[in-house]
Amino acid sequence: MTKINLEFVTHFLTSFIRQEYSKLGFQRAIIGLSGGLDSSVAAHLAARALSPANVIGLIMPYRTTPPQDLEDAREVAERLQLRTQTIDITPMIEAYFQSQPTDNNIQRGNKMARERMAILYDFSARYQALILGTSNKTELLLGYCTIHGDMASAINPLGDLYKTQVRLMARHLGVPARIIHKIPSAGFWPGQTDEAELGMSYEEIDQILYHLVDKRKSKQQLLSLGFPEEKIGRIISLIKASEFKRKPPLIPKLSERTVTHDFLYPYDWDK
């Protein structure tokens, strides 16, 4: 992957955040802080763009959340001097699964992600604070994220940065080293890690994605560059299988003008 100018990217993304918040008429941002890399970087960008006093960090642990993650989330907030609030989602999650039991960890994890989303939207209304997303390009392309869960936000500044680029940004922005070196995990169950579940490292994934997506290389060209066939195949199938997560729901076209088909207005309409 080509090197990137981290100061330029910082300037670009903070300008983006500042301008969008101003256009949408919000002063305050609200971010779900997990103590992981992506939300820490998003919080740093938001604090620079909108000033720390205008950024609210919501910390939403479940009973299995490692205490270290909680501590890291609090450290980010303290260093940046953000307002935070901690809401334990255990009672809501337990109540639901007591009445609708399952031993499927993915289902449980998705439910947790959507519980956090619901709380974020509620707090968005309480504080008139617009939700800043934390999804990176790697997870958006692989679909390694929960639709209507952690994918839900108003604007998503990290959406065109691969995970390894977010890590570079973290260093540049002064995110604590422990967070930068933490093994990434969606936190669906104790001991889960992204890389074990995906079967490859983020370095490998991002290299393959960069050549496939940014450079529009074919599978054949990737093979000749020396990437293993099995990994290329797995990544391509993950991308295809998750396209629905990157699109609004399909609407069957009946009329002469239909939402998502030919009712074509900019997001920034009248802003």
């Binding site: 090197k3 990137i4 100018n5 100061e7 330029f8 990217v9």
Partner: peptide, 10 residues
């Protein structure tokens, strides 16, 4: 619109 970020600024 700008596109293609790189090592140098811009």
């Amino acid at each position: 619109p700008g596109r293609g970020f790189q090592e140098s600024p811009g």
